[in-house]
């Protein structure tokens, strides 16, 4: 009797290990590839921000997650409907590293996540205010699967519970057909404009205990083509 139980236990263990390895290294999950905005000839507005929560103005989540709220005394999102959400307010910088405005990002784990298909989906919305230019609303679904596979899993496997390296990838996975986010201009010179954007993440260090240690996010926003005869105007970003 005992030998059958041991065999069953070992079989379950091996099966679980094969499942996890198959999940992580599933050859049918293709990488997202090149962002459509990296080959566009339209004018691009580039905004960057620190993706390290402790470098934000404020970051909060349910308080029990790996990434801790900042500052410590910020209210936590512990109520059931918002427990899987986070919110971050941060300074947005232009391509020259100068302050361009303020960004507020809302993120929620999506029920559309399908790990077997390589989809770890986060629904997110950005509000960005750029003094002198106006405000923007960006809505997108993000796929964090490649970040999980290439950064977070290796950090868990490491004896130091951390990861160091250079990882760069696009997070935006929709709603645009070309894996782009939908952007709406709210006020100022951006008012009424419909645009597309892609959010990417560049990570250099990650800790199991604290989340991202050195990481920068970037938003590339494709501005509408200027009408004929106004080519002289250009963005300073």
């Amino acid at each position: 009797m005992m030998k059958y139980l041991i065999a069953l236990f070992l079989g379950l263990l091996v099966g679980a290990a094969i499942f996890v390895i198959g999940l992580i290294y599933n050859p049918f999950n293709a990488d997202s590839g090149l962002s459509p905005l990296s080959i566009t000839d339209s004018e691009i507005m580039a905004l960057s921000f620190s993706a390290v929560p402790s470098e934000a103005i404020v970051f909060t989540n349910d308080g029990d997650s790996r990434v801790k709220p900042f500052p410590e005394k910020v209210q936590q999102l512990w109520e059931a409907p918002i427990r899987l959400s986070s919110v971050m307010a941060t300074v947005m910088r232009d391509a020259r590293g100068q302050t361009a405005g303020i960004g507020i990002k809302f993120s929620s784990r999506s029920e559309r996540t399908r790990l077997l298909r390589g989809e770890a989906i986060i629904d997110s919305a950005w509000y960005i205010y750029l003094p002198g230019r106006g405000s923007l609303f960006i809505e997108q679904s993000e796929n964090h699967w490649e970040f999980l596979r290439d950064v977070i899993f290796p950090a868990y496997r490491s004896s130091a519970n951390s990861w160091k390296g250079a990882w760069l990838g696009d997070l935006t996975a929709g709603p645009g057909a070309l894996r782009t986010a939908a952007v709406t201009g709210g006020t100022g010179s951006l008012r009424g404009l419909k645009m597309e954007a892609v959010e990417s993440l560049s990570a250099r260090a990650y800790s199991v205990g604290n989340g991202p240690v050195a990481a920068e996010g970037r938003l590339l926003i494709e501005l509408p083509r200027a009408p004929q005869g106004s080519e002289g105007e250009s963005s300073d970003d």
Binding site: I82, A125, Y129, T187, G188
Partner: peptide, 10 residues
């Protein structure tokens, strides 16, 4: 300028 963003998960 006064802008609101409301985020209701799911």
């Amino acid at each position: 300028i006064i802008d609101w963003v409301l985020h209701l998960p799911a």
